[in-house]
Nucleic acid binder design. Structure first.
Lengths: 247, 247
DNA sequence: TTCAGATGTTGATGCAGGTTATGGCGCCGG
DNA sequence: CCGGCGCCATAACCTGCATCAACATCTGAA
């Protein structure tokens, strides 16, 4: 890896952290000088597995990934979707054994950063420790939002809520705008995230199209009525803690 | 507050942290010298509210509390139950606006610790910062476990899983043993945590009693067959990260 | 260009869990 | 001593989503 391309690689992380906090110049430079080995992965490839004890974290540079857990009888639950700038296994810095897996959902570029380098970084920059901690706290806030959706909302409301969340997260790192965003995942993936079957996801999507709420084609989601979508799902973006707030 | 009683108050926090990590003597003493104002609260009383910007954290000393969110149409979702030693709003150190509420479920004693004191503590003891961070990460791991239960398990399996989790958490801080533990909450509370109605919770509990899995009387849960209960719910205690592992 | 496997769509049917209602019991305040 | 209230229990009925199945369409590899 040439230094030049490493700076480029880590700018994804800088952009993500700046979407939820402010960085000083020194902090930005320190992040950009982290060692990071990028790799291109095929869709559906595991990055870390349930039970692993990783010695590095993965930074998504391009494409989508998700955290998931497999259960008996072939059931799968997805906990979170991850896009450029996310470090979905940041918690392995302090929780050494993985209690779930992480895999790509699309073709994806992923960079690996050794734990040692991260630990060194946050020792030298306690402000960054705080920001990384904060990032894992936002993660937890998103889990809580998902719990509300799974426990107390209908499938229709749940999907609406997820679309609002994904759109804002993508927009915050410059991957979406004008109420359109990429959604390069299958209805099966959506179902596994929502706790529904792909069949029912399909029916609800049809209904949302019929209502004129969304269009969804060629792996692109267009939100035709943000107000309706967020009203239906009682969506309140506070929990995402984005510096640039919702439309 | 006399110093002597403050030491007693904060030993709940020490015990809790020692259930998920190891403390040095200096760290233990530093925690025990935190300022903490205990208060006795009635059941069902809010400790912090959705939208608040607290300047202190609450430490549960006795009784049960929970994090929850209210939705339109009177729906409520509970995210977590909290017992002696827990600091359910630790995240307010870095996420300033509450995105949910915290209330007592029983009569409870709660101590308030100013953010400033906590920030000072973790600046002086970076090892403690790490442990607090770790505690919020365990929290997030529990959220993930709940998401799996809500998305991919039946009501029966879900309740079984929750009982396993609660028993181990209580035992880890010395509040349970011999497969018996206090469960001083109503079936309505359980339903709001599980994403079920109290009626269905009742049905499932009857069924579990009929199967001889549990007895539940006088706010006390007795697990009659730990093996069955954990097998049914595919319970794997790894995610709780307890130093003293499961039976 | 073709073909096979993955994904999306639609329909028929069943069940887990929601909804509504009612009664009993223990507790507390008047 | 009574009345009201909170919680537990049970029953009857309803519905959202799962399940199973068939087929259509897309995608990518040969």
């Amino acid at each position: 890896m040439s230094p030049a391309s490493e700076i480029h690689v880590l700018s994804a992380l800088v952009r993500k952290l700046e979407s939820i906090a402010r960085l000083s110049d020194a902090e930005r430079r320190a992040i950009e000088s982290l060692p990071a080995k990028p790799r291109l992965l095929q869709p559906g490839q595991d990055i870390v597995r349930d039970g692993d004890r990783p010695s590095q974290c993965c930074l998504i540079l391009d494409g989508w990934a998700c955290r998931y857990k497999l259960l008996g009888a072939g059931k799968r639950q997805i906990f979170s979707f991850h896009i450029a700038g996310d470090v979905p296994d940041l918690q392995t810095l302090h929780l050494h054994v993985m209690d779930h897996s992480i895999c790509t959902l699309t073709e994806a570029t992923v960079a690996f950063i050794p734990h040692d380098s991260l630990r060194d970084l946050i020792t030298r920059f306690p402000g960054l420790a705080e920001i990384f901690w904060r990032d894992t706290l936002v993660d937890a806030a998103i889990f809580r939002a998902w719990i509300v959706c799974m426990g107390r909302r209908s499938a229709y409301e749940h999907i609406a809520h997820l679309f609002c969340e994904l759109y804002l997260k993508l927009r915050a790192v410059g991957l979406a705008d004008g109420y359109r965003c990429p959604l390069p995942i299958t209805q099966i993936d959506l179902g596994d995230a929502l706790g529904l079957t792909n069949v029912h996801v399909n029916r609800v999507l049809q209904e949302m199209r019929r209502q004129g709420l969304i269009t969804l084609r060629d792996h692109t989601l267009a939100i035709e009525s943000w107000d309706e979508l967020s009203r239906i799902s009682e969506f309140d973006p506070t929990y995402l803690r984005l510096e640039k707030q919702a439309a």
